[in-house]
Amino acid sequence: VSFKITLTSDPRLPYKVLSVPESTPFTAVLKFAAEEFKVPAATSAIITNDGIGINPAQTAGNVFLKHGSELRII
C-alpha cells in the first residue's frame, strides 16, 4: 500500500510517498515517516486530512482500508 504523508508543521507542506507491504505494522510507518521528515517519532502522530487520529497498533493495510492514502504527520 502507498501513503502520501504531509508534514503539517512546515508552512511549505512537504510530503513523502511511502510504499509498504500491507502487513507492515503502522508503528513502523510512523517511525519511518518521522525519520524522513527529521522530526522525533516519539512525539509524532499520524492523522487523517479530517484531523482524526490513527491508532498505530494496526497494520498498514488496515489503515489504508479505513482512512485511504492521504495522511498527515503532526
Results as ranks from 00 to 15, higher is better:
Ala45Phe: 03
Leu71Glu: 00
Thr6Asn: 05
Pro11Leu: 06
Leu30Thr: 15
Lys16Leu: 08
Ala33Asp: 02
Asp10Trp: 03
Leu65Trp: 04
Ala45Leu: 04
Ser9Leu: 12
Phe32Gly: 14
Leu30Ile: 12
Pro25Asn: 14
Gly51Val: 00
Pro56Asn: 13
Arg72Ser: 13
Glu36Leu: 06
Thr27Pro: 11
Pro25Leu: 12
Val39Ala: 07
Asn55His: 06
Lys16Glu: 08
Lys66Ser: 11
Ala57Arg: 13
Pro40Ser: 09
Leu7His: 13
Pro56Leu: 15
Val17Ser: 10
Thr6Arg: 06
Val29Glu: 01
Val63His: 07
Thr43Cys: 12
Ala28Trp: 08
Gly61Phe: 10
Thr43Asn: 08
Lys38Pro: 03
Ala57Phe: 07
Thr6Cys: 06
Leu7Pro: 07
Phe37Trp: 06
Pro14Met: 10
Asp50Gln: 08
Gly51Tyr: 04
Ile47Met: 13
Ala41Met: 07
Glu36Arg: 10
Thr6Gly: 12
Phe3Val: 00
Pro40His: 05
Gly53Leu: 14
Ile46Met: 15
Gly51Asp: 11
Ile74Thr: 15
Leu71Asp: 01
Pro11Phe: 02
Val1Leu: 03
Phe26Lys: 00
Thr59Tyr: 09
Leu13Ser: 13
Leu65Gly: 10
Lys38Ser: 09
Ala42Thr: 08
Gly61Met: 10
Ala28Ile: 05
Gly53Ala: 14
Ile54Met: 02
Phe3His: 00
Val1Ile: 13
Ala42Gly: 05
Asp50Arg: 08
Ser2Thr: 12
Glu36Pro: 00
Arg72Thr: 06
Val39Gln: 09
Glu35Met: 10
Ser19Asn: 12
Ala33Thr: 11
Lys16Ile: 09
Leu13Glu: 13
Ala41Asn: 02
Asn62Val: 12
Ile47Asn: 12
Thr48Val: 03
Asn55Glu: 08
Lys66Phe: 05
Ile74Ala: 13
Glu36Asp: 07
Lys31Pro: 08
Ser2Phe: 07
Leu18Thr: 10
His67Glu: 10
Pro14His: 07
Phe37Gln: 01
Ala28Gln: 09
Ala45Tyr: 04
Ile54Arg: 01
Phe3Trp: 01
Val63Glu: 01
Glu36Gly: 10
Phe37Ala: 02
Lys66Ile: 09
Ile47Arg: 15
Ser23Trp: 11
Thr48Gly: 14
Val20Ile: 11
Ala34Arg: 14
Ile52Thr: 15
Val29Asp: 02
